[in-house]
Write a protein that binds this DNA or RNA. Sequence first.
DNA 1: TTGTAGGCGTTATCAA
DNA 2: TTGATAACGCCTACAA
Lengths: 346, 346
Amino acid sequence: MSTIKDVARLAGVGVATASRALSGNGSVSEDTARRVRDAAAALDYRPSSTARALSLQQSSAIGVYVPGFDGHFYSGIVATIDGVLRSVGRHMIAANGCGIGTTRQLDLDGIDFLIGRDCDGLIVASNSLDDDDLERLMERVPTLVAVNRRLAVHRDNAFCADHHAGGRLAARALLARGHRCIATVRGPQDTPDNEARLNGFNGELARHGITVRPEHSADGAFDLPSGDAAMQRLLAAAPGGRPAFTAVFVANDVMALACISRLVQAGLRVPEDISVLGYDDDDFAPYTSPPLTTIRIPTASVATSACRHVLNLCYGLDLPVTRDFPPEVVWRASVGPGPHAPMECP
Amino acid sequence: MSTIKDVARLAGVGVATASRALSGNGSVSEDTARRVRDAAAALDYRPSSTARALSLQQSSAIGVYVPGFDGHFYSGIVATIDGVLRSVGRHMIAANGCGIGTTRQLDLDGIDFLIGRDCDGLIVASNSLDDDDLERLMERVPTLVAVNRRLAVHRDNAFCADHHAGGRLAARALLARGHRCIATVRGPQDTPDNEARLNGFNGELARHGITVRPEHSADGAFDLPSGDAAMQRLLAAAPGGRPAFTAVFVANDVMALACISRLVQAGLRVPEDISVLGYDDDDFAPYTSPPLTTIRIPTASVATSACRHVLNLCYGLDLPVTRDFPPEVVWRASVGPGPHAPMECP
DNA sequence: TTGTAGGCGTTATCAA
DNA sequence: TTGATAACGCCTACAA
């Protein structure tokens, strides 16, 4: 591997001149610049980004932590971030929760690992860490931003869709289609994004005098198996296997996929017998059977803004950033008319 | 940020001693070792991995390129690699195809980007690059290994499941269930993994005197929309909308998901009217409606071995590596009995 | 416009 | 067992 010294020697100039010619910082006569470029090409010179990092005191690396790469939600975020980073010549050191332990510990470990890798900034998606955890982290790493959650203290360093509004939207959608007796498959207890959407949902129902009965509610963990299991529990609790509810709000699309599958296997038709409303609008939502009606979260926008914000923080850039990410309902086939009159919600 | 110099000064020793004490390389008296450790703790010292990389001439970074992070296939690979890497204290610089251009150009750009980031090794998943592309790349980067494809020249640097056997298995599965008139939804033309599985599939059918009729074959691109479109074309070609085929082999599960959805929307029942056989055994396969019968590819094993191989190459390790990844059929509900007698294939 | 030299934070060498 | 010191490859004053 040739270094800038080799290039300088071959071009017959000093290293500083070579450096300036190659980086474009500082003035070099057009003639020598060309000589240097030729020499670099001849030697197939590639600058060492490590040396550059040491000298400049910045690695150009942004650490990205997600609980898992699989699952459509986080992989979309990672893909978006990679795109933004590459467009400004930085790269992504990605880590996900792996090993054994509580999800909180996994998240903490992964983030710690990233911090040890000289990242200029950090983007973290975690719903297992509490506000204190994140605050402590931000104390150590001022360039850390959180996605998909809100923060009390460092508000500007958190980017999150309005899940409360999302939940509200979900309730209105079901009400508007004439459903009154409604079940929910929730996300994991104590995760902020789950809580927000369910509070929004239940709040809106309550506003119309409706509550979800305890036996019509089951917890999942945002993944396939738990979605399936939750629906099984809901079905098992139904007298004679014929549920009283006519619609289910499922806290994410992944679980909704599993719920539909379970419903169909139980001999129930979607949406004729039971309507299913998802959340997230994952890329597979249009392709479930039947296609999934769901609440779209503009995840790509959230990730883009979060990433731009770290970039601004780390490199003094001034990339435009958005903080408002309104969800919307996407009507497909999995929600049908319920037994009651449509209820318009202002 | 404190450096090793600060630690050395506080501990009252030279930097070399501090370095030895902290890294464990070289002998240090127990007493001074403790003093150094205390000083490091007191200063909250964290070694600069950049400086370490420059000095050691290795970055401890492995570049990972996948065409996209979304989609279950690649995200599983990335997650697996991250786990292996972390377990040996290395990290992953991940990149995916982004921007505009042919997929081949995207792949080339992404890999180039990674090469410029001082990665010690590279793991590449691409079915858009041809053998020459990869060979040229390996000339420049001897520590590059390919996953999910075979290579003629640098055979050992490629890790791939036996997709030909996978296709053969798929054919046998359908034959064994009494199907004779069979359709296929293929992956993208000219991609090696698609070709292998389809050659295996068609070859096995041919062995039993069966061929897939041209109008019973459609190309997709391994993604949701193209799977849907392919099935639409198959249906459109059927006289009166009643297809003559009783089963479809779909070249991956993602497209199979879309195919089932399209079939159901066309009023066809799966598997009563049409059986659907997928490929990959993605994590959602048990949760489609009906659950998807598919060919399982041990992707995690492939990724693990590929990763260990780079590790061995880069750092002179001797991690165990496997090269045989046999596929198997996973029976679920989407394939039902066909109109003919079961055919056992030896 | 150019070149010399010092520094970035480690690790490794080598003499003490 | 220790501690100066010289790399590692780049960038950037500073001086010419």
